[in-house]
């Protein structure tokens, strides 16, 4: 057996040692990168100084750098990465297709249309833009679900409908930008790159609240989701409430992705790549939800560090880095799926 069991009294927890180890390793990696990110910048600090500052013994400059600038940004990165990856893992599992990822099937684009509508048509505030993104993501999610639904959502249907929706939404995005005046267009373009620049506590708290509700909900349905991967009939036979499980999970995933996008803009390819990377690392069948989430956080933190440090003085938005990394990954995925005869 590739799994081990923890038992106390009548309770038992089953886990795959390799998956647990991978998860722990990724967690350490994420914490390491987060520490580096908090320590570096225009005003370098030692981990010791950061710790002192966190405990309330720092100078005002240190406090400003850590508590106002770097810490919220790192925390937002962790939550956004985790939420995107978890949403991706759920969708890839439900569609039984590694391409069935929110950023491929149009949710990112939907959120962008929502945000741009607010920016371009209403000149809305940052908060209104964020709400617009959430609304756009949810509406897109519902529309794609309804269009792809035919007595249950099926893998390729969802992917094909989603890719179609993504293409249409992309043209709406371009249309909105041509409609905009220069200031709005600049703002829209900046929003669209996906960035952690200047993210602070106002992005963090709502994100944390949503994650606190949805992450346990999704993880709690993880076992049912694993049964669903064997097909609806097999899951039914095992006593899974198939449609209900799927709706709960899809709605949660859409919300997670929409809220993450509203906080940091459409950061592409984290949803797509994190679950697959997690899967290759754990070598465990099934959706690997928890490990995927940690992988997403680590990926986004890593991409943020690269964006800030790898190009000399030039700071790049993190969305550019995930785009480049993820694009390479997508190519590799397409080639290997083709070799395996799946597309």
């Amino acid at each position: 057996m590739t799994t081990k069991t923890l038992r106390t009294g009548g309770l038992s927890l089953r886990y795959a040692p390799r998956a647990a180890l991978s998860g722990a390793g990724l967690l350490l990696l994420a914490l390491g990168v987060a520490t580096v990110l908090v320590c570096t910048g225009d005003f370098p600090m030692t981990p010791r100084e950061v710790l002192d500052t966190l405990l309330g013994n720092g100078t005002p400059v240190q406090e400003f750098a850590v508590l106002e600038l770097r810490l919220p940004r790192v925390l937002v990165a962790i939550l956004v990465g985790g939420a995107l990856a978890l949403g991706g893992a759920v969708f890839q599992s439900i569609s039984r297709n590694p391409l069935g990822s929110p950023d491929v099937i149009g949710f990112g684009q939907g959120a962008t249309v929502g945000a741009l509508t607010v920016i371009v048509l209403f000149q809305g505030s940052a908060v209104a833009t964020a709400l617009g993104a959430v609304a756009g993501g949810i509406v897109t999610g519902a529309a794609i679900y309804l269009l792809a639904w035919k007595r249950g959502v099926h893998g390729y249907r969802l992917v094909l409908v989603g890719i179609g929706a993504a293409a249409m939404l992309t043209s709406v995005i371009h249309y909105l930008i041509t409609k905009a005046n220069l200031t709005d267009a600049t703002r829209a373009t900046v929003w669209m790159t996906g960035s952690l620049e200047g993210r602070d506590w106002t992005q963090f708290w709502p994100l944390l609240a949503v994650c606190c509700v949805l992450v346990p909900l999704v993880l709690g349905h993880g076992r049912a989701l694993r049964m669903l991967e064997m097909g609806d009939d097999a899951a039914y036979a095992l006593g899974v409430k198939v449609e209900r499980t799927r709706i709960v999970l899809m709605a949660s995933a859409v919300l997670l992705v929409a809220v993450a996008t509203s906080a940091a803009g459409p950061i592409v390819f984290v949803s797509l790549s994190a679950p697959q990377l997690a899967r290759r690392l754990t070598r465990a069948p099934g959706p690997n939800l928890a490990v995927s989430a940690v992988m997403g956080a680590a990926l986004l933190l890593g991409a943020d560090w690269i964006a800030g440090n790898a190009f000399g003085d030039r700071q790049l938005p993190v969305g550019v880095i995930t785009g480049i990394l993820g694009g390479c990954y997508l190519l590799w995925l397409l080639v290997s799926e083709r070799k395996a005869g799946r597309i």
Partner: peptide
């Protein structure tokens, strides 16, 4: 119990792990 006509074995699952899923209910 039901043995459906078409079930999909998840990629990379071992026989023991698949049979163990029967314990889900």
């Amino acid at each position: 119990g039901l043995l459906p006509q078409s079930s999909v074995a998840p990629d990379g699952i071992t026989v023991a792990d698949l049979v163990a899923r029967g314990r889900y209910p």
